[in-house]
Design a protein around this nucleic acid. Sequence first.
DNA 1: TACTTAACTGAACATGCGTTCATAATAAAA
DNA 2: TTTTATTATGAACGCATGTTCAGTTAAGTA
Lengths: 195, 195
Amino acid sequence: MARKQGSHSDITGPKVQAAALRLISQHGFAAVSMRQIAAEVGVQAGALYNYTPDKQSLLFELMRNHMQDLLADWDQQDKSGTTLARLERFTRFHIRFNLPRADEVFISYMELRNLSPDNFAKIEQMRREYETGLEDILRDGEREGTFAVPDVRIATMALIAMLNGLNSWYRDNGRLGLDEIETIYWDLVRKSVAV
Amino acid sequence: MARKQGSHSDITGPKVQAAALRLISQHGFAAVSMRQIAAEVGVQAGALYNYTPDKQSLLFELMRNHMQDLLADWDQQDKSGTTLARLERFTRFHIRFNLPRADEVFISYMELRNLSPDNFAKIEQMRREYETGLEDILRDGEREGTFAVPDVRIATMALIAMLNGLNSWYRDNGRLGLDEIETIYWDLVRKSVAV
DNA sequence: TACTTAACTGAACATGCGTTCATAATAAAA
DNA sequence: TTTTATTATGAACGCATGTTCAGTTAAGTA
């Protein structure tokens, strides 16, 4: 039996990705079985192999899609204005992009070690590309005297780690609204690199 | 065959913990089998159950020991001096304690979801206790006007996330020495909460 | 020397794993 | 209506899993 009612790979494919995303984020890649994912989709395990060559590729696709979305979105942000304005824009963009993607972000940091060496290198390169966006801003600001950053690379890693931390404790309907949180983080970022 | 030469549980016990620490940190809790751990220790899988009631407890013990060490070490740090001095002491303590414990720190953040609900609650409470150390410093500084912290809880989470990030990229024999890195991070921390 | 006991082996248990494949069923094309 | 391509099933493959336990070895005690 197959293709009951309008069903199609256009429907099942995304369902597989969504189920893998949710389950891997919750239990971890190694702890989630293909049968669990299949059950969440509503098919047998064998059917998953119409949509992915193997479990490893399923993980890689999740992470690659996330990084591609991130880079594409960042790419079409306004890059003009003062260095300070650019830093604020990066900060707010990072928060607004990552917060609604809790599962993707979580997986992208937790499951790096479960990628094959080849796949790891690809993801790592994309991450590095994104970090360069912030690094350039800090370097420009340091050069023109807007910022005082003893070490640009360290500051980049430190700020991104700080911003990423938000994802681990933020909850909708929490004590503070997104706008307030965003402003508080921007305040911390701004001052940490101030002259 | 048992107790070949001076062998004893006083020797094998710590070996089990060390093997579990290394392997779980490298591959993840779910991906490491009791047989792998046993092989690293040099015994059969069954022998591990002389030292832990089950796999879950093995993970929990690793995390609890780490958190206990952290709290004990922090407890005997000097708590006197100005608020600024206390913040600097926390920052440098955190870096110096965590950096040489890469495996423990990694596990303590990555494997929280693999703890049973009971065990999770216990670890979470210890983490919260540690965070309170920083939170108190920030609150005191805010009250006396040394710091300008719009939201003490958020600043606490943000600063700890920033400091923890160091563990993910630091390598011995890297570009910068530990002292330099420590000072750079202290600079970021100090300014981020400055008035 | 004989005895006790801590420490470990090695096999077994039921269960689950990722993946493959012959087969079936259906939707779309002819 | 017949044909074709797509999408799924369900059983099977060999192998690994956490855990238990009766039996074995050797160190420590008397």
